[in-house]
């Protein structure tokens, strides 16, 4: 079985429109079931993104920081 395809959205250095907006835009154009990994240098995203993901009803797969960049994985469920 092959590894799951993950779309990377590199929003490091994004103040406007910002990481969550980049994630929302990507998920709008993505198939249901697809996984998106958001890269953000904004520490606020680590809190904002899970709040939105849960409110809308997608799935949070994980969030970890590597060298000042948060890698936030989300699966589109609807």
């Amino acid at each position: 079985m092959g590894e799951e395809k993950v779309t990377i959205v590199d929003a490091t250095g994004s103040f406007c429109p910002g990481p969550l907006m980049e994630l929302i835009a990507e998920l709008r154009d993505t198939e249901i079931g697809a996984v998106v990994e958001l890269l953000s240098s904004d520490k606020g995203s680590a809190q904002d993104v899970p709040v939105w993901v849960r409110k809308v009803g997608h799935e949070m797969l994980g969030s970890e920081e590597k060298d000042g960049v948060w890698h936030i994985r989300v699966r589109k469920l609807k």
């Binding site: 406007c16 429109p17 709040v51």
Partner: peptide
């Protein structure tokens, strides 16, 4: 507004 505050720029 789409995100958790009134504008994307904090």
């Amino acid at each position: 507004y789409p995100i958790g505050r009134t504008h994307s720029l904090e």
